[in-house]
Nucleic acid binder design. Structure first.
Lengths: 184, 184
DNA sequence: TTTTAAATGTATCGAGTCGATACTTTTAGA
DNA sequence: TCTAAAAGTATCGACTCGATACATTTAAAA
C-alpha cells in the first residue's frame, strides 16, 4: 500500500516534469526525442528503424512523427543507395535551430549546477539503473561507437578509426556518436 | 551541436522508458500517475485540483482522466461536506489492486538493487535536481506533511500531531502523506 | 533459380493526452 | 450586495501510440 523508494519516486516526478516541459514548447515529447536522437546518432543510425529501436516505439508511431517533423521542415528523408527499403534521416538547419531552444536545457542546467555544487556525479548510478532495466526487458544499450567491440583505432593516426562490422572509416566525431550496431 | 550532460541524457532515457512501461500496461501514463498520487496523498489532498497542481496538468486533462478512471471503477468521486464545489477522490479496491501490478515496480526494483549494490543513495542528488527545477518554474515542492511548518507534534503522545493550518488531528499515517498545503 | 521468409517503411483505426477556451456553480471578499 | 476567485465540466484540435494490415525490397533456402 505504501509507495516506491525515494529514488523511484523522484524519477517518476522528474519524468512527469520532462513531459510537461516538452509539451509546453512547440513540439511534442516524442518529436523532441527524435530530434535529440538525430543530433547524437551516427550516419548508420539515422534511420526510422534505429529511432524505433532507440525510443522503443512502434514503426507506425515513428513514421507518423517523422511525417510531422518533415512537414515542419525540421527533418529530411533521403533514400539510401544500395537498399531501396531504407531511408536516411537528417536534421535541417531549422531542426538544429529548434534544438537550440530545447526545453530540456533547463533540466540540463539544473543537473549540472547540482552536480557542481555537490561535487557528485549522478550519471554512474543512473546508468546502472538504466542498464539494469534494459537488461530485464531485453533491450539494447545503444552505446557510443568508440566503446563498441567493432571499433578499431587506426594505428598511428590519433582519433582516426575504422568500424570492423560495416568496414567504414570513422572520424573522431563518428566515434562519439550513438550507433544502432553498437556491440552487436 | 553536441548534446546534454551524461546525467541529463540518462534522465531523458529513463523518462522515455517510464513512458513505455506505463503505456504497455493497461492504463495510460497519466492514469497511472493519478493512481500513485492518490495512494500517497493525505485526505486534504485527494482532490482534482491537487492532482492538477501536483502533476502540472490542466484542469481539463485531469477531469477527463478521472472520468476514465471512474469508468474503469478504479477511483470514486464524492462530494465534500461544507463546500459544494469540491470533490474527494478515493481509490477503490480495484484501484489498489491495479497498483499492485504497477509497471513502475520494475524500475523500483532496479533502483533498489543498484543502490544496494553500490552502497549509494541517488535520492539526494535527484531531489536537489527536482527542487532546483521546480524553483525555476515557480512550482511547489509538495512535501510530506511531517516536514511542513504547520505540523505540530502532540506533546507527550508519540506519533500524534496536529495541522495548525487546517486545525485537524493527524494520525501517524497522515504525517507521512503528501499534502497540497505543504509549507504554505 | 525460384520460392519463401524477413526487413523496412506506410496507412488506418481507436482510445487517450493535453493545451486552450468557454462555461456553470459555489464560495469568499470588498 | 456585488464582484471576483475557485472548483469542476465540456468541447475542440493536434498529436501519441499500440494494433493491424499492407506494399516493397532484400536475403536465404530449396
Amino acid at each position: 500500500m505504501s509507495g516506491h523508494s525515494p529514488t523511484t519516486h523522484l524519477l517518476e516526478r522528474l519524468s512527469r516534469l520532462i513531459q510537461n516541459e516538452a509539451h509546453a514548447s512547440g513540439l511534442k515529447p516524442v518529436q523532441w526525442e527524435i530530434l535529440r536522437f538525430l543530433r547524437l546518432a551516427n550516419r548508420f543510425s539515422r534511420t526510422p528503424s534505429a529511432v524505433t529501436a532507440y525510443l522503443n516505439l512502434t514503426k507506425g508511431t515513428v513514421s507518423q512523427s517523422l511525417n510531422a517533423l518533415e512537414t515542419k521542415q525540421l527533418v529530411t528523408k533521403e533514400p539510401v543507395a544500395g537498399d531501396r527499403r531504407r531511408l536516411t534521416l537528417a536534421l535541417t538547419a531549422a531542426g538544429q535551430e529548434m534544438l537550440a531552444g530545447d526545453p530540456m536545457d533547463a533540466l540540463d542546467a539544473a543537473a549540472r549546477s547540482v552536480e557542481a555544487a555537490r561535487g557528485e556525479d549522478l550519471s554512474g548510478g543512473l546508468r546502472a539503473v538504466l542498464s539494469d532495466l534494459l537488461r530485464r526487458r531485453g533491450g539494447r544499450a545503444f552505446g557510443v561507437c568508440r566503446t563498441c567491440r567493432h571499433y578499431r583505432p587506426e594505428p598511428g593516426v590519433a582519433g582516426q578509426a575504422r568500424c570492423a562490422l560495416l568496414n567504414e572509416a570513422l572520424t573522431p566525431a563518428d566515434s562519439e556518436a550513438i550507433c544502432v550496431e553498437h556491440d552487436g
